[in-house]
């Protein structure tokens, strides 16, 4: 039997809606979405473009606030934090990875990875030591003093992953981390993320279009037009993705599970 703590959901999203005002229109990016994610899971948000994946991810990581509803992470209601507290919370608890790597071009790999540690009280030598450790985890210990433009896309993304884990956050959130990579590099990144879950017990949320991702994640949430697909709709969406990935043969263990819980 699993310990109680492990069954406690790390993330709870309760009846969340997010609307953007654009000119005179209102865009319903998310409508009444509820879901929960247990600690130590690797889940994907999938769905067509504009379905609200990034919006949901931004809410979970405290980058954005819902128009309605509540987001709880490790028991903390993000709505209770003001802008600066939220920034501090993100710095401490969330590691972020984006599609475009957005490393700082004027800093070498090690300084890029050490960047989030500037927000801590660590001494410079300790910051650099931790950055080097993180680079070792992603297999780039040979590239510490390379600048981003001298690294390949896959390598840059691994630097970004090192940056995301250097603060040892509970939660890693990635928005289309493989979106800009070729198949081989994409798989390497997915494999790396899975290892972070398996070896370090991280909870990982990944927004993706990539059908291959299904082989690596514990669960995929499907969004469409701002709604979370549930029950049969979700199963159908899963099967469609598996089909796209090359026929349901490669379905990862415990993938499609009915309902909104992973």
């Amino acid at each position: 039997m699993e310990p109680v703590a492990a069954r406690e959901p790390l993330i709870q999203i309760l009846s969340v809606s997010r609307r953007y005002v654009r000119g005179v229109d209102e865009v319903h990016a998310l409508e009444n979405v509820s879901l929960s994610i247990a600690a130590g899971r690797f889940v994907a948000f999938m769905g067509p473009s504009g379905s609200g994946k990034s919006t949901l991810m931004n809410l979970v990581s405290g980058i954005d606030r819902p128009s309605e509803g509540e987001v709880l992470v490790a028991g903390q209601s993000l709505g209770e934090l003001d802008e600066d507290e939220l920034a501090e919370w993100r710095a401490r608890h969330v590691g972020l990875i984006f599609q475009f790597f957005n490393l700082i071009p004027v800093l070498d790999a090690r300084d890029n990875v050490a960047l989030p540690l500037l927000l801590t009280d660590l001494a410079k030598s300790e910051r650099l030591r931790r950055a080097e450790t993180a680079l070792r985890v992603v297999g780039l210990e040979e590239r510490t003093d390379h600048y981003p433009r001298t690294l390949s896309g896959g390598e840059q993304q691994r630097v970004a992953i090192a940056r995301a884990i250097v603060t040892d956050p509970d939660l890693i959130v990635a928005d289309e981390p493989t979106g800009d990579l070729d198949a081989r590099n994409a798989e390497a990144i997915l494999e790396l993320l899975r290892r972070l879950k398996n070896d370090f017990g991280k909870t990982i949320i990944m927004v993706t279009h990539d059908p291959r991702a299904l082989r690596f994640v514990d669960h995929a949430f499907h969004l469409d037009k701002g709604l979370l697909l549930e029950g049969e709709d979700a199963e159908r969406a899963d099967r469609a993705v598996q089909l796209a990935a090359g026929g349901g043969l490669l379905s990862a263990a415990g993938a499609a599970r009915p309902g909104g819980a992973a």
Binding site: R90, F100, P116
Partner: peptide, 16 residues
């Protein structure tokens, strides 16, 4: 702008 947005997302406060 991109880098600045990423830095803010990472948790750099506005004053920094």
């Amino acid at each position: 702008a991109g880098e600045i947005a990423v830095m803010k997302a990472i948790g750099f406060p506005r004053r920094v």
